[in-house]
Amino acid sequence: MRNGYTNTTGNQTQPEINHTTMEDRPLSDSKVIAQLYYVKEIAADRAEMHTNIGEQRNNWNHLLLMSVNAMTLTAATMAGFAATSCGKGAPLLAFKFSSTLLYTAATVMLMVMNKIHPSQLAEEQRNAVRLFKQIHREIQTILAIGNPTERDVKDAMDKILALDRAYPLPLLGAMLDKFPATVEPAMWWPQRKGLVVGIDIERRDRKGSNGWNVEMEEEMRQIGGVLKRKDKTEYVRLSKLVLKVHKILAISGPLLMGIAAVGSALQGPWAVVLGIIGGALATIVNTMEHGGQVGMVFEMYRSTAGFFRFVEESILSTLKERDVEKRENGEFFEMKVALQLGRSLSELRNLAAAAASFRRNGENTEEFASKLF
């Protein structure tokens, strides 16, 4: 451990550099430093890639939305002209054919939009950019502190690979499911083997060491419980609610557009109603879904739930380490958790005390752990 602190984002603990394992031992040559510099450059390159692709996919959302709405409104206008035109013949057929063609093309484009949902893709890339930049800064901190080890290189590589899996760049074959059957918090960090979230860590009385004591362990245990019971659960609930709205809008838009296309191809008063009103309703639904960026909101809630799970796992993995000397320094860890949740140290301690009191009294009115979201 360098000066009692670790350089990870919280779910990885940093062993002492004089540990006997090979990957924890600092090397005398520049091999580890060179490796870390290379991993840092990879993280910066990944951030740039996700930035560029995120801008592209955000442009897709705006351009496709405007194109589909313009085609739909034009088709509805042509259907109206066809209904008001006198007589039969070429003018009538031209209006009806053009209206049906535009509706059909808009329906296909809308189905593609609902499949990939560009606003949600853009939000995924924004999250990836922020997290790759975070890895980049962590490596800079390691290099600035000095004495990096092979474990630092391995941890950084694992984080980059986990992020690649969490936020893939390709659309075909690797794209995240935009309408998952079950909603789970986003997970972009390496999973520690043998770590089961939600299992109470055994309470062990010990003397204070490395900034830790029994009171601080109990405080962190209570904070982790609040994150699981309140914050993470609430944002998973919101994610499920938004996903339901998302599915309804994704089905309604193409359905209304298809009805309008059929109405524009037929003759009669009800066909005119279907052709015009169906197109208007499809435009409204499409604007609500893609203009309101419902997919982006779903991904935002899912990522926020993932952040709370990440903090919870970082607390759990730290408390699970029996040797307190191998843990992150207790005072630094407490400060880091407080800042991650948007609280001062006193507010964090008050929250832990209140959570313990609520659980003893069997109440369920405790406040949320985070003040950021």
Rank of each mutant, 00 (worst) to 15 (best):
V272F: 07
G291M: 11
Q293I: 10
A355E: 14
T283R: 02
L256K: 00
N364F: 07
L266K: 05
I276Y: 02
K326Y: 07
V324R: 15
L319V: 02
A355H: 02
L339E: 13
M257W: 00
R360P: 04
L319K: 02
L348N: 04
E325S: 15
S344L: 07
M288H: 02
V294Y: 07
T365G: 13
R327P: 01
L339Y: 14
L316K: 04
G275V: 01
R349I: 05
E363T: 11
E325M: 13
A354M: 11
T283H: 05
I284C: 09
S346V: 15
R322S: 14
G306N: 07
A354V: 08
E313D: 15
I315A: 04
E321H: 02
G295K: 04
F308I: 04
L274S: 09
M335V: 03
K326Q: 14
R322V: 09
A353H: 13
D323R: 04
A355F: 11
K326C: 06
A356V: 14
V324I: 12
L351I: 09
M288L: 11
G292V: 06
E289Q: 09
A280E: 01
V285H: 00
R360S: 07
L339R: 15
P269M: 09
F358K: 10
T287R: 05
M288C: 08
T287C: 12
L319E: 01
D323L: 03
G278N: 06
A280L: 10
L345V: 11
A355G: 03
K320V: 02
R343I: 05
R309W: 13
E334V: 03
A353D: 13
Q340V: 10
S357E: 12
F333L: 13
A352F: 04
A265E: 10
R349E: 09
A354L: 08
V324G: 03
S344P: 11
N286E: 07
A260P: 04
G306L: 07
V297E: 04
T304S: 02
V285P: 00
V337S: 01
S264F: 01
G342W: 10
L266S: 13
V262S: 09
E299W: 06
N361Q: 13
N350R: 04
F307C: 13
A352S: 10
T287A: 12
F310A: 00
H290W: 08
Y301S: 10
V324F: 07
I284M: 10
G278S: 10
E347F: 06
G253E: 08
A265W: 05
G258E: 02
S264E: 12
A265K: 06
I276W: 02
V311K: 01
E347P: 05
G292I: 10
N361L: 11
F332C: 14
D323M: 06
A271P: 01
A352G: 09
A280N: 02
G278K: 03
S317N: 13
R349Y: 04
